[in-house]
Structure formats: C-alpha cells, structure tokens
Amino acid sequence: MNVFRFLGDLSHLVAIVILLLKIWKTRSCSGISGRSQILFAIVFTTRYLDLFSNFISVYNTSMKIVYITCSYATVYLIYGKFKATYDFNHDTFRIEFLLVPSAILAFLVNHDFSPLEILWTFSIYLESVAILPQLFLVSKTGEAETITSHYLFALGSYRLLYLLNWLWRYFSQGFYDLIALLSGILQTVLYCDFFYLYISKVLKGKKLSLPA
C-alpha cells in the first residue's frame, strides 16, 4: 500500500459517501444518472466476488463491503425511495453499448481464462466507461449541482491517484497490470473536460455549467 493508492481509495470512498448523503439529505436524485449507478453496482459485484474466498486484509474486505453496500443503497434510493425525483427524461444513455463490448473484450483480453478473472476483467473495462451516462446527463441538462460536481471530482481523482499508484508500483517493485492501467487511463481521460470546468468554475464559486 502506498500513499497514492490510499488517497485513491479515500477519494473513492468520499465520492460514494458524498453521493449517498446528497440524495439522502436533499431527498432528491435530480442531476444524478441512475444508469451510471447501476453500472457501478455491477462493477463492484463482478469485481468483489472473491470477497469471502480470498482474504487480503481487514482494510480490503471492509472497503469492499462498504463499496458494495453503498452502491446498492444508492441504486435503491434512486429507483426506489426517491424515484419521483429521478430524471428519467435525460438519463437515457444506452448502457448496453457499454455492457456488451466490456463483456466481449473481457473474454478476448484477460490475464487468465477463469470465471473470476474474466469477471474481474469485465469489471475493470466496465468501470472505465461507467461514468459516461452521468457525463451524458450533465451535458444534456447543461449544468450540475455543486455537490454533484464535488462527487465527480472525487470520483475522477480516485482513478487518477491509482494511475500514480501504478507508476509508483512499477518503479518500486516492477509491478504492472496493463489491463488495469490502460482502462484507468481511459477512465481518467473521460474526466478531463470535467476537471477543467471544475477547476476553472466550481473552485471559483461558480456553478458548473457546460457551454450551451
């Protein structure tokens, strides 16, 4: 464990908690893509199937449980409790265009052709594009609530910090994982324009609005 990976996990946890609290406190999921949250729940489910079979550390197991619990709770709040506030008119990104290619690619490009490994690879590919419905929703509505932009900033930072973690692990212990690395680069690149808007607008106290 190095500082980049720890900060990455922390940033990821903060993002997940910010979103859950935003929906719970405001009793509204306006501006949030339920489809992205479904994809994240699928990512965690397919990645952490070894939760009980492969103990790494208390930290690892407890974080996996928190991620899975929070992601399902968020999906429940969006499609269950606060579905009246769900923006189904704008949350229309076709997630099958993300699920099917990720699944096919996971069968073709993986480290080991075993069920757990293929599911892990699928979760890595899917995670790299899982934010697209959310970014699509923000582009359609043309703006995002400030709390939502903080959520996206924390979520985008997590994988950027993981890229630094992989750089660190490569130079310190010769470790590299091309599948996770290339997916992580794609995932982070998707946030670039958002990062620019966040830093140039939100940090100056303005609302995040996309150029119409």
Partner: peptide
Amino acid sequence: GYMTGSHDEL
C-alpha cells in the same frame, strides 16, 4: 510481472 490470481487492489 503480470498480476494474476488474487488482485490485492480495490
């Protein structure tokens, strides 16, 4: 080298 088997990252 490549990481196979158990993945130790979240």
